[in-house]
Nucleic acid binder design. Sequence first.
RNA 1: CGGGGAGUAGCGUAGCCCGGAAGCGCACCUGGCUGGGGGCCAGGGGGUCGCGGGUUCAAAUCCCGCCUCCCCGACCA
Length: 488
Amino acid sequence: MKQETEEQQDFVKEVTKMSDDFDRWYTDVIRKAEMADWSGVRGMMVVRPYGWAMWEALTRAFDDMIKESGHENWAFPLLIPRSFLMKEAEHIEGFAPEVAWVTKAGGSMEELEEPLAVRPTSETIIGAIIRRYIQSHRDLPKLTNQWNSVVRWEMRSRLFLRSREFWWQEGHTFHASAQEAIDEAQLILGYYRAIAEEWLAVPVLAGKKSPAETFPGAVHTLTIEGLMRDGLALQMGTSHYFGQNFARAYDISFTNRSNELELCYSTSWGMSTRLVGALVMAHGDDSGIIVPPRVAPIQVVVVPIFRDDEGQAKVRRFIESWSGDLRRAGVRHRVDWRDERPGDKYAHWELKGVPLRLNVGARDADAGQVEMVDRLTRQKVAVPVAGLADRLRQELDGFQKRLYLRAAQFQRDNTVELRSLEEVVAHFAQKGGFAWTEWCGETEEEARIKAEAGGVTIRVIDDQSVPSGKCLVCGRPAKHRVALAKAY
RNA sequence: CGGGGAGUAGCGUAGCCCGGAAGCGCACCUGGCUGGGGGCCAGGGGGUCGCGGGUUCAAAUCCCGCCUCCCCGACCA
């Protein structure tokens, strides 16, 4: 009895193993890595510096991309009058269940004349406002974006993946032609793909969503879907083409070259702090998370090893002789001078997913080298300090690539080709991952898949390839090649 | 929002059934030995037992209400 208790206590000290309980592992690791926490306000998270820094890396990367293609950042109101929100019927119907309302305000809690919605997304308020700035085709395209947080009254929350408040960017663009807007949505999807694959090292499937999964009010929705290590898919960014739906609802029109009044074509697109959760779930292992170098707040951690004051001074001088080079070379690094044992520090930084660790002791100082340990392979190699900064940059680059290849291999290993609903049901009863198949395009058939295969949905439609076979459900000629998965 | 479980020091928990001095492990502080993969010894500090009310001589423990968290569903970036 006593032993059992001690074992349990020993166990809880550690992070839950990923293979034992993925959900518990996920929460444990995010909290122990000091990325985020629950706040005490139901469903609302606090993002801690280590997690926020990863989001910041993504925001900088994406902000650069959209600025390059002419987008501008705006700030639009947090609160949206009910009347604004109500104008696009399909849109409000889609969001109604998860909107939080402000109905009272001021010291005496006076009832407001008109309830204000806390934005769940800003199509409506931006639509209502942007019309003032658009008169002529010369005012188009209007390419807006804002970095903000939004509130959705979710019933069930998970750190980063689903919280009642989350941080994101929402882009909203207005164009003079349908084709231009369609191209815009596609352009942004490409950016999201780059963020996922080149920055987060997560390979994704990209394509259209099925009508049932299309954003409320959109003509079509584009998505990128990544695969997490538990076999569930995760939507990592979406881009919507609205046609003239929102322009019609909000009367956003312009005078075209022929001096006729015409409704704008619009898009919207977003990626959120969910991506930080994606990084955790796509790369983590039993030791903790693994952060892709390009978004890592700390790319290289230096662990000094010494016995006494004299040894410490020696190691310190040695580290100082090259750490300036790392800084100048843009290698984000930290020297861990905490008064802990080396083994403690190793475990600590592995949990936090720092890609490279340099162990540096007196012997290394004498030899003019450091011991470099890789978070992925755990292999230790001696590296001379001459040219260290360049070497580390190469290593980080290689690490980023290996991390991507590892995730790509995982995706390949967990992707199958299926032909019938029976096969789908049988497959997803056993495993996760993606399953390519062909579908007739009917919403009822899609609903049957979801119902019979326990929540399996169409994640993406691959419009590039032409289907040759029959619908997996009804057997009629297929219209689309689609990837199925269980998803978050 | 429906069904189930839980909230005791920073973290993880015992105690609750059967009311009667709030304990343990980790973390933290001090000193010492240590130091190349989670080390050891000694001493020490830290608690509105989630919040509010009730029952009782007495409540962490029983009763009522609320808040928060976890799991399962329906909803979802």
